[in-house]
């Protein structure tokens, strides 16, 4: 409880500090809306001409897309600090975090707030709601329970994968982690139905780098869509695995930092 409270307070403090600059806040909100708008425009223009892509209709794709945007916003809100990890290591600033009686990983995560978060959370949430409204989902208690498990699991996967990608900074020296940036961009591929990709790429996105469990698989099982819909039931397990991976990779890296100096 104490741990969570400190985490929340750290994020809150950064939030207050950044909201001081109102113009910056609105610029980033607008930028996020425009960026996601470009993606939506693509989806809209395509579905204006074809009814389905590989069996996926427009609102089903919007649901996947919305999950991805929501997850991105969540990661920008809760773990934006990890994008600064390479710089913290590079400048030796991780030292001070090791000197405080609070988990280092959580200090890193809460050391920034991504201002895009608000734009992306709003857009993602809006897309999710409107897609679900158009899809005519029968909200049985089972469905509600499924959604209640799938949604946080999916968001957790995104946050954990961001932590894993950036934890490679302990091994890759440099002030910016290009590898993590590339990995994040690779994850963007899963904004569209997975089946459009080659089998090899599908396998990578479903197993080694399970970005497909952020949007595609949870949506598949929730809508009972496609032969592989059942795979979506694994989402909570994948989430647990990703959290485990994030914590393990980070603490391995930290141990390396502690014995190697900087």
């Amino acid at each position: 409880m104490h741990t969570l409270r400190v985490y929340r307070r750290s994020l809150g403090a950064h939030l207050r500090a950044t909201l001081e600059y109102q113009a910056d806040f609105w610029i980033l909100v607008v930028a996020a809306v425009l960026t996601q708008g470009a993606g939506l425009l693509l989806i809209a223009t395509i579905f204006a001409r074809v009814p389905r892509i590989h069996g996926w209709g427009v609102w089903e794709v919007v649901l996947i897309f919305g999950m991805m945007v929501l997850a991105q916003g969540t990661s920008e809100l809760l773990a934006e600090g990890t994008w600064g990890l390479a710089g913290l290591i590079n400048r030796g600033e991780l030292d001070r975090m090791l000197l405080r009686p609070y988990p280092c990983l959580l200090q890193v995560c809460s050391s920034r707030v991504g201002m895009n978060a608000f734009g992306n959370l709003t857009v993602g949430g809006g897309l999710l709601v409107s897609a679900l409204a158009h899809l005519d989902v029968a909200w049985t208690p089972g469905r509600v329970a499924l959604a209640a498990v799938l949604l946080p699991s999916a968001l957790l996967i995104k946050v954990s994968l961001t932590v894993v990608a950036n934890s490679t900074s302990f091994w890759l020296r440099g002030a910016i982690n290009t590898f993590a940036g590339g990995l994040d961009q690779l994850g963007e591929l899963t904004k569209y139905p997975l089946s459009i990709y080659s089998v090899g790429l599908q396998a990578v996105l479903a197993t080694a780098l399970p970005f497909a469990f952020i949007g595609f698989f949870p949506v598949s099982v929730f809508l009972q869509h496609g032969r592989l819909a059942w795979v979506g039931l694994l989402t909570p397990l994948v989430a647990a695995w990703c959290v485990f991976l994030a914590v393990t990779v980070f603490s391995r890296g930290l141990r390396r930092y502690e014995s190697a100096g900087n």
């Binding site: 403090a13 950044t18 000197l99």
Partner: peptide, 21 residues
């Protein structure tokens, strides 16, 4: 090197430290 939170007002650093410790 500073151990203050670089992007925060100073009092926020003290309050965060109060909570952490």
């Amino acid at each position: 090197r500073t151990q203050l939170w670089w992007d925060l007002p100073v009092h926020e650093t003290f309050e965060l430290l109060r909570d952490m410790y």
